[in-house]
Design a protein around this nucleic acid. Structure first.
Lengths: 196, 196
DNA sequence: GATGAAATTAGTTCAAG
DNA sequence: CTTGAACTAATTTCATC
């Protein structure tokens, strides 16, 4: 896991919101120059944090058919091939596979065509159960975790307010809601390191 | 539903793939000038086909926690409020609600924090069942339907190759794999209209 | 790493078909 | 609905800190 500084996170947040925002605008908001923003974005692409610049489309405005969520229970061994088969289908936008051998696919398709779409894309004999949910609403709200705002205490889990109590151990920063939690965590960490 | 021409669809495809591609580059590929591409993209934004320009992030490179799919079965009346509550949570990226009163949310969170995250975001008393799936893989493959390439016959469902056999009835165009399917469809349509 | 100034490249406006 | 030419704006390079 890469550790990004607050400037990188803010750049990501601004790009998620509007990837066409001029670098000069981003630069102003993060209090750096435009070339710096350009360099950092290049770096974020190189290390794979930014997969690509893209557009979020509302398919319902130009595609026939309804959005459906297809839920498959698979033979444990079949997962990867089936996921690939589905991802290649034009109507399928998302494919999720779970550790418990299920697969969820979001597709835009006429409901009466779901079966034939599946039959063409994958080997249905390796599917143990199939459910199709009609989607009513779909929200994509990409957030970038804000290290200073929506943080949970690493000791007790409650929300950390203010910027107060943190601790760096072995190159990773931990955050706490109060000094009590911080010292408890510190003690546990010390005895853990000792026994290792 | 808006009808987009083949040029619009190709522009969308190119933008989905790389939204930073210069307009001159897009212009060349769709055989139009850069100002035309600019105008069309503006129009696509205005009519809501393009929701926004954004970046696709690989959160696993910089976020702690695993990706999970939370599946809730809701009291039928509770859907919207609960979806809103979840979408507002920083760790939650997607929220899907289904016609059968289920809700699916994709989140990046430490698995032992899922319960507390849900308890903070929503009223759990309105949730009838809760399942958490650990996600193994997640693929986003945004396609833009190609009207000429990946079309299914409106009579028999098989793939339509070539541009041959189509029919316009009451303002909507239907596509067929062969003239036989076209005339069968035409007959059924005629008798259907008659009885209505 | 970061910067300002210069050079390059991209995007938009506009008059016209 | 489209275009080429002119104009405006954004991005990258580079010398320097």
């Amino acid at each position: 896991m890469t550790t990004l500084d607050e400037t990188d996170l803010e750049i990501l947040r601004l790009l998620v919101e509007d990837a066409r925002r001029p670098y000069s605008d981003i630069a102003e908001r993060v209090d750096r120059s435009a070339p710096t923003v350009s360099d950092r974005i290049d770096r974020l692409r190189e290390i794979g944090v930014v997969r690509r610049f893209t557009v979020d489309l509302d398919r319902s405005t130009f595609t026939e058919g309804a959005e459906v969520l297809v839920e498959l229970e698979l033979e444990p061994a079949a997962g990867d091939r089936i996921a690939e088969g589905l991802a290649a289908v034009d109507a399928v936008e998302h494919v999720l596979t779970t550790a418990d051998a299920r697969l969820f696919a979001v597709a835009t398709v006429r409901p009466e065509r779901v079966r034939s779409m599946l039959a063409n894309a994958i080997d249905l004999s390796r599917v143990e159960s199939l459910r199709v949910h009609l989607l009513e609403d779909r929200v994509w709200s990409p957030h970038v975790g804000d290290a200073d705002l929506a943080l949970e205490c690493d000791e007790c889990g409650s929300t950390v307010t203010g910027g107060g109590h943190s601790l760096e151990l072995d190159g990773r920063r931990y955050h706490f809601c109060c000094p009590v939690c911080r010292s408890r965590f510190e003690e546990r960490y010390a005895s853990l390191s000792e026994s290792a």
